[in-house]
Amino acid sequence: MSEASLPRPGSLPARLVRLYGGLALYGAGIGLQVESGLGNDPWDVFHQGLALRAGVSIGTVIIGVGALVMLLWIPLRQRPGLGTISNVVFLGLFADAAIFVLPTPSHLALQSLYVALGVVSIALATVLYIGAGLGPGPRDGIMTGLVRLGLSVRLGRFLIEITVLAAGWLLGGQVGVGTLVFGLAIGPLTQLFMRWFPLS
């Protein structure tokens, strides 16, 4: 492909590539953490716990929860975009596909590699799909809505994630060292990737 035929940065085709590439990468990151067996990020602890209770795939729960969370946007006066709807529809599908394809590691070294790759993938994916400028994911929108009501980003994110983490753990979701690694690394990694992939 020639340079002239590549989509221009900031053009709609380039933004769509960022959006759907980011969602696919995010799904892969979820799959890596789930298959590691060492603990998921807070939202996926919750998703996994619900999936275990309901007897369905984690991707199905991701889709269902995403749709329900969007209802909370109404009192927060948040407006969904194409990226929001795409997140609801595709993220769970990509996560289920990754879990189906990835082999389950049996050694700690490979499990640890899965966690590391999963956290890096999710950080990069977040920058890609939010940076596409086509609307945040439903869970991201709750945080930004709370910020609009006067909470700080840090406090809003903490309150949301500690709530879903506790609920997911009580439901049987996997909490472990992978959860801790995610909590410590996701912020710095996301900030780093934002320097490399500025907003469209």
Rank of each mutant, 00 (worst) to 15 (best):
55 G>W: 07
48 Q>A: 06
39 G>M: 02
82 L>P: 13
11 S>L: 03
123 A>Y: 08
98 A>E: 00
72 L>F: 14
2 S>E: 13
163 T>L: 12
110 L>G: 01
27 G>A: 11
95 A>H: 14
172 G>V: 04
177 V>G: 10
90 F>Y: 11
61 V>E: 09
5 S>Y: 08
167 A>G: 02
58 I>E: 13
133 G>L: 00
198 P>L: 03
130 I>S: 00
171 L>D: 12
169 W>L: 02
168 G>M: 05
113 L>A: 14
45 V>M: 04
106 S>Y: 02
194 M>S: 13
141 G>Y: 05
63 I>G: 14
11 S>Q: 04
41 D>M: 03
71 L>K: 03
18 R>Y: 10
74 I>D: 01
100 F>Q: 07
40 N>Q: 14
117 L>M: 15
137 G>R: 01
183 G>Y: 05
47 H>E: 00
82 L>S: 12
83 G>Y: 08
181 V>S: 11
105 P>I: 04
27 G>T: 12
14 A>Q: 11
134 L>G: 07
109 A>T: 11
134 L>E: 03
162 I>E: 04
107 H>N: 10
85 I>R: 12
164 V>R: 07
76 L>W: 14
97 A>L: 14
110 L>R: 03
35 E>V: 06
133 G>Q: 02
111 Q>D: 13
48 Q>W: 05
3 E>D: 13
136 P>V: 02
120 V>C: 06
44 D>L: 12
175 V>K: 03
4 A>M: 10
111 Q>G: 01
163 T>I: 07
58 I>V: 15
197 F>C: 03
50 L>V: 04
100 F>H: 14
105 P>F: 01
119 V>K: 10
88 V>R: 15
165 L>V: 01
142 I>E: 02
92 G>R: 10
85 I>W: 05
118 G>T: 11
132 A>D: 09
133 G>K: 06
88 V>N: 08
198 P>D: 00
42 P>Q: 07
136 P>F: 08
15 R>L: 01
42 P>A: 06
125 A>M: 07
